[in-house]
Nucleic acid binder design. Structure first.
Lengths: 216, 216
DNA sequence: GCAATAATAAAACGAACGTTCAATTAATTC
DNA sequence: GAATTAATTGAACGTTCGTTTTATTATTGC
């Protein structure tokens, strides 16, 4: 046997990516074998090497595209106004929505960093740092403007990101809480954490609107 | 060759545990080979099987003892008073101190759960749930007493735990911040997040003391 | 000092791993 | 419809894996 009827390179490659994200998220990168992945796609292991030269190339591709997607999503969601509270709210909303939507690839990008070569790890971490820098800038602007009370911008940014990303550990779609309920609760926790509640700026109304929306 | 001069079972077993925590934290459970571990200990791979019947037994032992240590530490640190703010402060302090102190085994216990068999995974998760239940109880008591403003006890508990545990991702001893500085900052973030700052109970003074301590 | 036991080494086992290669068939191009 | 290219198979390669077995030496108890 050889080429199968109806086979299509683009479709196979997409199927490989999809199955790889799901398998690596479930089993871990090291625990997933190329034969297992191939079986999930419905193909022989050798066929995978037409699309990804090595197993690590496959992992790196998934991670790079995850980070690119996250940065693109933020670029699209980034508000034009300068108000720190509005920008922070947008950052939280985008972060949680993206990570819930892409739970599996988030898992892969967070858990399998140590399986990358040094150079590729650096590339992924560079993208991650660039994304986190946006949050630090928002916190700094808010602190300088006096609308946030943040003691340590860097530490607060890390705490917030870990708190928000952690949502993928326990959140399961279709259970007790909806995505918008979760987002609203995290938003109000964030605003309290950075001390924005005392600021009572114009955008504080927007936060309250989220809190109301949650109770519906 | 066979038994080496000065060999001692207890010492070897302790050395195996120590090396295993460090290696698994660095490389991951699947990526660490038994030969690698043996070499780190200065022994042949076969010798490991005198102490742990399988690789997974070794992993499970490390995880179970980590969780037991965490619960014991909390039992020792648990305050006798009923005041929710004091109890929450103690929980945060204990959690962060323990996780910074045992960074490597925390990493193992958080990242390698999927390598456990179903039964053992259940055992570890049961211990984890018991520990987290303590935090939920504190939050519930505080919310009922009106000293915390928490919308969703379970969600807030998860958010706090993820935020606090996340400290091991970026914290490196001897860098910019000391352990007590980090703890103090996390404590004030926690108190703001649960809305305790408005309560201004007697223990609020203790929180302020922590905040002052940080700026020294 | 001799028997019993504890601790290890050395070698081997079969299975699984990532990857490569040659052959083969389907689709496309002219 | 022949030639070319794209997609895949099936088999194999060498390596490494967790683990077992057997032999050997150090220590301990009497």
């Amino acid at each position: 046997m050889a080429r199968t009827t109806g086979s299509d390179g683009e479709k196979t490659e997409a199927a490989v990516r999809e199955a790889a994200v799901s398998l690596i998220a479930r089993l871990g990168y090291e625990a997933m074998s190329m034969r297992q992945l191939a079986a999930e796609v419905g193909v022989q292991a050798a066929a995978l090497y037409r699309y990804f030269p090595t197993k690590e190339d496959l992992l790196f591709t998934l991670m790079r595209e995850h980070m690119e997607g996250l940065i693109e999503a933020w670029d699209a969601a980034r508000p034009t106004v300068a108000d720190p509270a509005t920008r922070l709210a947008a950052y939280v909303e985008n972060h949680i929505a993206f990570h819930i939507e892409r739970r599996h690839s988030t898992h892969v990008s967070n858990m399998e960093l140590r399986s990358l070569s040094h150079d590729r790890l650096t590339q992924v971490l560079r993208m991650r740092t660039a994304y986190e820098k946006e949050l630090r800038a928002i916190l700094r602007d808010g602190a300088e403007a006096g609308v946030f009370s943040v003691e340590d911008t860097g530490l607060t940014a890390m705490a917030l990101i870990q708190m928000m990303t952690g949502v993928i550990v326990w959140f399961r779609p279709g259970e007790r809480l909806s995505i918008s309920e979760v987002t609203a609760t995290y938003l109000s926790m964030t605003m309290r954490l950075v001390g924005a509640a005392h600021g009572a700026t114009t955008t504080y109304g927007a936060v309250r609107a989220f809190e109301r929306a949650r109770t519906l």
